[in-house]
């Protein structure tokens, strides 16, 4: 395997305090916090999309049941967007401390698109709040209401490609070249297939979540 660039590590020790067993512990924590983060994100993507879908169907068929389901789904969206962001911090912290030069180099190569995970996310959050809190006020202006929800869904779905490109890039430093950038990282088969897998898994997890949530709400 040929490496064009090999970044050096930060010349400060890993914060284990001399207890080497903490290194595998960090790795374990990274995996666990990552999985929790991804579960929240799955629910966020699935529930926000389903909410807009049921909202639209409720309006089209004049069916209040669909409308109610769409509205009920805005609560798990609020919770999962906040908890998802929060549980994204732990893996970000761990990956930054364990793989500093690899992860940061990948993030730099994927910039300025890397900043989309902040600014795109903020706009998505605000749109999703607007969508949730104007549900009853905009009852007579459904197309506007659905449009606001759709913008937040599109923005939420636009975030995983940025994460995925950075994660795939930092895993594979042997692929780094002078001109490596966000688009070249995103359009690689390994990134694209992983992304497709992630989106499909999102629907699967959301299905399970809706089953459980629906059951809980029925009681």
């Amino acid at each position: 395997m040929h490496f064009n660039f090999i970044p050096g590590d930060i010349p400060l020790p890993l914060p284990t305090g001399g207890f080497d067993f903490l290194v595998p512990f960090f790795h374990g924590l990274l995996v666990v916090s990552w999985v929790v983060h991804i579960l929240f994100i799955n629910v966020l993507l699935g529930a926000s999309l389903a909410s807009v879908y049921f909202n639209k169907r409720g309006a089209r068929d004049h069916n209040p049941v669909f409308d109610r389901v769409g509205y009920l789904l805005t609560t798990p969206v609020t919770i999962s967007e906040n908890m998802g962001a929060l549980w994204g911090v732990a893996p970000l912290l761990l990956v930054s401390v364990l793989f500093t030069p690899l992860f940061y180099s990948a993030a730099v190569m994927n910039s300025p698109q890397w900043l989309h995970i902040i600014y795109g996310n903020i706009v998505a959050f605000l749109c999703s709040y607007l969508y949730k809190f104007t549900w009853h006020k905009l009852e007579d202006r459904k197309s506007l209401h659905i449009a606001i929800g759709t913008i937040s869904v599109i923005l939420f779905f636009s975030l995983p490609p940025v994460f995925m490109a950075t994660v795939q890039l930092y895993f594979t430093p042997s692929t780094w070249e002078q001109g490596t950038n966000f688009w070249s990282a995103l359009l690689r088969p390994d990134t694209l297939f992983r992304l497709a897998h992630f989106y499909l898994a999102t629907f699967a997890v959301s299905g399970v979540f809706m089953l459980l949530y629906g059951n809980a709400k029925r009681k």
């Binding site: 911090v89 993030a107 890397w114 900043l115 903020i122």
Partner: peptide
């Protein structure tokens, strides 16, 4: 998000 953004900005 802007709090996490401080990290994200500084890391690039």
């Amino acid at each position: 998000l802007t709090g996490i953004g401080i990290w994200v900005h500084v890391n690039i």
